[in-house]
Design a protein around this nucleic acid. Structure first.
Lengths: 247, 247
DNA sequence: ACGGATTTTGGTTGACTATGAATGATTTTG
DNA sequence: CAAAATCATTCATAGTCAACCAAAATCCGT
């Protein structure tokens, strides 16, 4: 079996089980202890999982320690993201029926929303909690619940989007290019983003400068299909695009 | 079992029970007293729980500042609820398609579920998280998200139940009488309970003795429509009912 | 297609860690 | 106060781990 294939299967098993032992992987992948250990070390070094005595657990499932790396990465673009989030939140007005996509940038938005007369739909459990906690009416999509991202994705989620017609919607993205549009690494997530955008009148993608000229695995919408809210673009060609709102 | 896995389960049980004894954890996690003690020490040192003589309690519960009433009420029927939860969890077998209703009793169930080959649907966000965290496949209902109960209720939720055909389902209730069946105080919750029961082959209502002879605002199912799992019924007439499983 | 360089793999070793049982100290309960 | 339960400590054992080495597979230029 190919090394990369083992990597993929280890991650897949981990994804579905939450944790896995070296012994389990030995029998499951029919490989030696040494090989499994090497694989786990490689994946851990790459930040794909957390090694523990006896096996491995999902990255975010580490019981105690606060993930320093994620925390730091979040910190990095915080200022830019906050500015974007504040602007986006300001776009919501009374009577709006708003879709908010899962993700860290959209999460920030919620703190800045003031108008109490809007109704929200989201596929992120954390967003739903936050919105409901602030007194908004919130609907959540039905479908497969993913532990890692705490978001609802897949066919079911897409189906439950069918009935909604949003006035405004806000999405995150991993990559933006003129040719390949907006892209994200997960197929199931992409399906939800795509469908939710289709049923939305005014579409806004929130993206800091780092997302431009990146292409991720799955495109969920063409470049022109949404207004892009961003900050600090240098002298790139994107500045001149009609649908780029630079704050 | 992985050490980290034990940590996670201890915290999970603690979360749903408010408190736990070393003895309970020994039988539940199938580990020695030494191991449990070491785990509790580790988690306490890490600030994840508060150790007390005989076991552990939730961190913030130590000073009794928050939700004293809720904690006390939880404490009261703790043993009974655990017994019921354990029995109910044992009913789930490989290949089952299981609905789990929102509520504290059903929450406890999750800690006892062992069969990894069942698929779950729930209207409780907390249940979904817990199940997904333990490696199960989980679907969540779509619909209005209520901040207080962290559950999904209302018309939308009922509609999203339409497509499912469960093999087994587990519900909580606030009241049980022979005449008025199972009842609960919230209309929107009742709708979800009613619809989910309709689409389920084997129905189980989990109820400690205090629920019998109580009538709440809305009836969601007739008395005979489900097996009732309970403990410690005295010499009441309910003992003789065919659909009452007394453990 | 061939042979040597590189990578990958699986086994072995000794160090390290987790576990469970035993012991006696400490606390709770009646 | 005395019995019972709980607790911290210690110790032997089993399991896990990184480091090393040799065999196998893969790669690459000829």
């Amino acid at each position: 079996m190919l090394t990369e294939e083992r990597f993929a299967r280890i991650l897949s098993i981990l994804e579905s089980m939450g944790s896995v032992t070296v012994q389990q992987l030995m029998t499951e992948l029919d490989a030696s202890e040494s090989t499994i250990r090497r694989d786990l070390n490689a994946l851990a070094a790459d930040g794909q999982l957390t090694k523990v005595h006896g096996g491995a657990i999902l990255k975010n499932a580490a019981y105690g320690t606060t993930d320093d790396e994620v925390l730091h990465r979040r910190e990095r673009n915080r200022e830019a993201k906050m500015t974007i989030a504040r602007y986006a939140a300001g776009l919501i007005t009374a009577g709006d029926f708003v879709y908010i996509d899962a993700g860290t940038t959209t999460d920030l938005m919620i703190d800045y929303i003031t108008d109490k007369n809007a109704v929200f739909v989201t596929n992120a459990v954390t967003h739903a909690k936050k919105l409901a906690g602030r007194g908004f009416t919130v609907y959540i999509l039905g479908g497969e619940f993913k532990a890692v991202t705490e978001a609802i994705v897949g066919e079911e989620a897409v189906a439950s989007l069918e009935k909604y017609n949003f006035t405004k919607g806000f999405w995150g993205t991993n990559g933006i290019t003129r040719e390949r549009g907006f892209s994200t690494p997960e197929v199931k997530e992409a399906m939800v983003k795509q469908k939710s955008m289709q049923n939305c009148k005014q579409r806004y993608v929130l993206a800091d400068a780092s997302k431009f000229n990146q292409i991720s695995s799955v495109t969920f919408a063409p470049f022109e299909s949404a207004q892009i809210i961003t900050t600090g673009l240098g002298q790139t060609a994107f500045k001149k695009c009609k649908n780029v709102i630079q704050i």
